[in-house]
């Protein structure tokens, strides 16, 4: 269960470039990314938060039931925690994170819908 930002209108909401979860900057700092913390390590790392999350996203999904939801599956967030996700996140994760993912044989899919198959 991710933290649900209180202010939906806030321009400062940031979406994770890897899992597209949306949180407030404060939450990012406080708890990091509930899905990809292990890879990204955002907690209390403002620089990393700035690098790995972005305000450039489009569309918000409230994933209530990730396991059952087709939307979550389509968005590839079905295995993530419940919470608010962005439909589309502009930008890519930093290169070193990409390398790290590659090393563990995880294919990085940018969230900007540029590479669909």
């Amino acid at each position: 269960m991710a933290l649900i930002p209180a202010q939906a209108r806030s321009k400062t909401l940031r979406a994770c470039l890897l899992c597209s979860l949306i949180q407030t900057p404060a939450d990012w700092k406080k708890v990091g990314c509930p899905n990809c913390e292990e890879v990204l390590g955002l907690k209390s790392q403002p620089e990393k938060i700035a690098a790995c999350t972005t305000t450039q996203f489009d569309g918000v999904v409230a994933v209530v039931d990730p396991d059952q939801s087709w939307v979550a599956r389509w968005q590839r967030t079905a295995k993530y925690v419940r919470g608010m996700y962005a439909v589309r996140v502009m930008g890519r994760i930093p290169e070193e994170v990409e390398v790290a993912l590659e090393r563990r044989n995880i294919k990085y899919r940018p969230r900007d819908q540029t590479e669909m198959d």
Partner: peptide, 24 residues
């Protein structure tokens, strides 16, 4: 604790994720 990151079902091509009649 941070769950291990396993990728997001990235092996499955997007087209296989198209909705089916069983989906809501």
């Amino acid at each position: 604790r941070a769950a291990p990151y396993t990728g997001d079902m990235s092996e499955i091509p997007q087209r296989l994720l198209m909705p089916s009649v069983h989906d809501a």
